[in-house]
Nucleic acid binder design. Structure first.
Lengths: 242, 242
DNA sequence: GAGTGGTCTAGACCACGGT
DNA sequence: CCGTGGTCTAGACCACTCC
């Protein structure tokens, strides 16, 4: 069943096998095999089994009860929608829409004190400032202003920006792998100028988003301010108790 | 250093010790002791050390690099602000404001098909419907409509609801421990009637929130629709890559 | 090659839930 | 009492990074 000399770890193989088993054979709240039974069935140690079960628990497939057993959770269906994706391109593709980004401007500027703080550099260093209009199936969806520290991204050009999504450009061209992104957002209404860009009446509901993206080395690689159509963006999050 | 016959697990004790060590002695990006060094220093097995380090990594205190070592992350400062709290009462207290909830109405109703689905019961079963106006330092902040399945919460009364916050009532009075809550929200504008409740002009920005709260047994214990002042609520979330 | 984190084994004892 | 998940040990080998 499991291949011991495979490059993928045993517990990851076990995760895949168990997910398949759950999806095809088990219902919600149904009891699974015990940890020791899984050990015997797949000929692996209990450490390996527990590593796999922990993964499954984090993914929302199962939950455990001390002294009782392990049970199917059936949350994985809902989990699918809960956005792990923070890329506009990916989000739109998931919704079955064709994303498009139009670069409206690209400037090479000097950071003032406030901007320097937000992109993690010293005052006076250089930053690229880019404005983009992002659409899905031809409908304007959001208007973004992005700041990128120049020291990490030399020779940024519009042609590079238009060649691929920003979140592919970072790792593939500039060797900057994304670790995580923090977002703050709040409800607001469109101002006159913004309403023109998005083709909506002034006073329409919108979501204002402030995003800071960090690299594996904990450097800020992007700081973005967005204005998104309120009628098109629904955020989903899960608060877990401990 | 660590107490082997303590009721709290060794790896949890180790977590506390290491957090204290990081906070007092180490800077961001500084290298920590290796796993094997920690084994020797505290006289525990590597399994125990790795359990503790995994906790620390999840909490944002450290990050690991295969072949290089374990390093201080310094994200825990920011993490504090990223909302784990999904209770209005707790949120307001953290901001140093005095929260108040006024129960406007409490009804005992029969669920139609749509409502039944949202609270996880059968059509025709009973549900409590409650409306609340929530304020901070006397300022109306949000207007909530909450649905609670009656079978889990017999004899719900206004006096019970006013005696303590809902998220304390669930576990303490009805023995329903919260597992997690899912929230969906989007930007909108206040309608005429809502603007009266909140004391704001019609057309003001607002956040519309839909929350479903689940118990440890995966039962829905609350379904809430909220309208919150757009100028007072900022959501913060973190998207982690893998 | 030396040191690191990543995976894995084959045991052990404990605490909890139900019979 | 037995079976469950929770914790813990003392090893082992692998893959990665740097010298």
């Amino acid at each position: 069943m499991l291949k011991k000399n495979n490059s993928t770890p045993l517990y990851n193989q076990l995760v895949d096998v168990l997910i398949e088993h759950i999806k095809t054979n088990l219902d919600i709240d149904e009891k699974m095999l015990s940890e020791r039974e899984i050990c015997l069935k797949y000929d692996v140690s209990r450490t390996t089994v527990r590593a796999a079960l922990n993964e499954l628990e984090e993914m929302g497939y199962i939950f455990k009860r001390h002294g009782k057993g392990t049970f199917v959770s059936g949350l994985w269906k809902e989990m699918q929608n809960l956005s792990e994706a923070y890329s506009f391109t990916e989000q739109m593709k998931q919704l079955g829409k064709i994303p498009h980004s139009q670069v409206l401007s690209l400037e090479y500027i000097v950071a003032n004190q406030d901007l320097a703080k937000n992109v993690g550099i010293q005052e006076g260093e250089h930053v690229y400032k880019m404005k983009r209009l992002r659409s899905a199936d031809g409908m304007p969806m959001m208007y973004e202003t992005t700041f990128i520290p120049a020291y990490l991204f030399p020779d940024l050009t519009i042609s590079k920006l238009e060649s691929m999504p920003l979140y592919e450009l970072y790792p593939q061209v500039y060797n900057q792998d994304i670790k995580y992104a923090d977002e703050e957002f709040y409800a607001s209404v469109l101002q006159a100028k913004e309403s023109e860009e998005l083709g909506l009446p002034a006073g329409s509901a919108c979501l204002r988003i402030r995003r800071t993206t960090y690299s594996q080395e904990n450097k800020i690689i992007e700081y973005t301010l967005s204005v998104a159509r309120g009628d098109q963006f629904v955020y989903k999050i899960r608060h877990s108790k401990k």
